[in-house]
Amino acid sequence: MKDDTAPTDMRTHILATAQKIMSGKGFSGVGLNEVLTAAEVPKGSFYHYFGSKEAFGQALLERYFELYLAAMDELLSRPGLTGAQRLAAYWAHWLETQTADDPQSKCLVVKLAAEVSDLSEPMRRVLLEGTGQITARLAEMIEAGIVDGSLAVQGAPQEIAAQLYQSWLGASLLAKITRDDAPLRAAMAATRSRLG
């Protein structure tokens, strides 16, 4: 790695490299040496960018949610789509990425939530805040669908969004356990039924 790389760029590079590895192996299953070797960063440099492995994990999750929420915002702002079409695109993308053979495309929340929530309170808080922002955006899409007439649902959009998101998280976990996409396809069918 070149020495003239800006500190924020190097930090981002380390986080991006780590996400690729940890998406497949988890947080505890990956040592810092593995990440730094893959990122081509000297071991001594790590603590220049992160105070500890926990601070590193927190930054990893913050970056993940920043990118994930930016993609959701792009979908929300895409012109010419109804609320129902935005939701359909979101769930179709989830189904596609969670059934792909590439572990790097998998949801980091699904991969790390159970593992790190008991290990690190700061990481648990990042997960809580990030998933709350996801459900808020889903609720916005549901509300938009109600307003534009593309959805006819009963219940508060925030509650529906939370229920659907929880269903998809559970389905993603079951798909990992069974090594079968049937739980995700069932989640898609249930989502379509719930949203009419």
Rank of each mutant, 00 (worst) to 15 (best):
T99F: 05
P183W: 01
D148P: 08
K106P: 11
D3P: 07
K106Y: 04
Q154W: 02
E121P: 08
Q104R: 10
A175V: 13
A16D: 07
A18C: 14
L15I: 13
K111R: 15
I177A: 15
C107D: 14
L138Q: 10
G155M: 00
G26D: 06
K43N: 09
I177H: 11
A84N: 08
G83M: 07
K176Y: 01
L108N: 12
M10C: 09
T82R: 07
K20E: 02
L112F: 11
D118Q: 06
G51M: 03
E140P: 00
R192A: 11
Q158V: 12
D73G: 08
N33Q: 07
W168P: 09
Q98G: 05
T82S: 15
L184N: 07
A171E: 03
Y64S: 13
G31K: 03
K53H: 10
L61R: 05
M141D: 07
S193D: 05
A144H: 07
L67W: 00
V109Y: 07
A89C: 05
S45H: 06
Y49N: 07
Q158F: 09
I146A: 06
P7T: 11
L15A: 09
A114Y: 08
K25V: 09
V116L: 03
M72H: 10
E54K: 02
I146Q: 15
D102L: 04
C107F: 04
Q58W: 00
D102P: 07
L81Q: 12
L76F: 02
L169I: 13
Y47E: 00
A39Q: 13
V109S: 00
Q104E: 11
K176I: 06
L151Y: 06
L32P: 02
K43I: 04
Q58E: 15
S167C: 13
A144D: 04
W94G: 03
A175D: 06
A71M: 01
K53R: 14
S45E: 15
L32F: 00
A92F: 05
K43H: 12
S193C: 10
E66G: 07
A71D: 14
Q133T: 06
L195Y: 01
Y47K: 08
R78Q: 14
S77H: 10
A152H: 11
R124T: 07
D3Q: 12
I142T: 05
F27M: 12
A161K: 11
R124E: 02
E143S: 15
S117C: 09
I177S: 10
D101K: 12
R11V: 12
G149W: 04
A70I: 03
V126F: 09
K20W: 00
Q163I: 03
A114K: 11
R78V: 05
W91I: 03
M123I: 13
D102G: 08
R179P: 11
L195N: 06
D148C: 09
R192S: 13
K25M: 13
A152Q: 14
D102I: 02
A88I: 04
R179D: 11
A88M: 03
L36S: 14
M1P: 13
A88E: 12
V30Q: 02
Q158T: 13
A187L: 06
T131V: 13
S52R: 12
A144S: 11
V126K: 04
